[in-house]
């Protein structure tokens, strides 16, 4: 996890854990303090798409897939 970096500026990310299964973070957020940008972790998968692309994809995604 420590090698994860912000896709935009490559700074390290700070992890906030919402849910864990075993030793795996299932939900939470990763924060880039340099960009002040949040990256969600859902279903055990960190979404590190560039924020603009993520938002564009989410806009085309049915509401049932929205964040909890």
């Amino acid at each position: 996890m420590e090698i994860l970096a912000c896709p935009v500026c490559k700074d390290p990310l700070t992890l906030t854990i919402a849910g864990v299964e075993g030793d795996e973070v299932m939900s939470g957020e990763l924060h880039c303090s340099a960009c002040d940008e949040w990256y969600p972790i859902r279903d055990g998968i960190p979404n590190l798409l560039p924020p603009e692309l993520r938002r564009a994809l989410e806009a085309n995604t049915p509401p049932s897939r929205a964040a909890p």
Binding site: P7, N47, L48
Partner: peptide, 16 residues
Amino acid sequence: RFRLGEIEDIPVADAS
């Protein structure tokens, strides 16, 4: 491990 990300903007630190 699997991460959602773009190959044009790889979300990992240098030299990893």
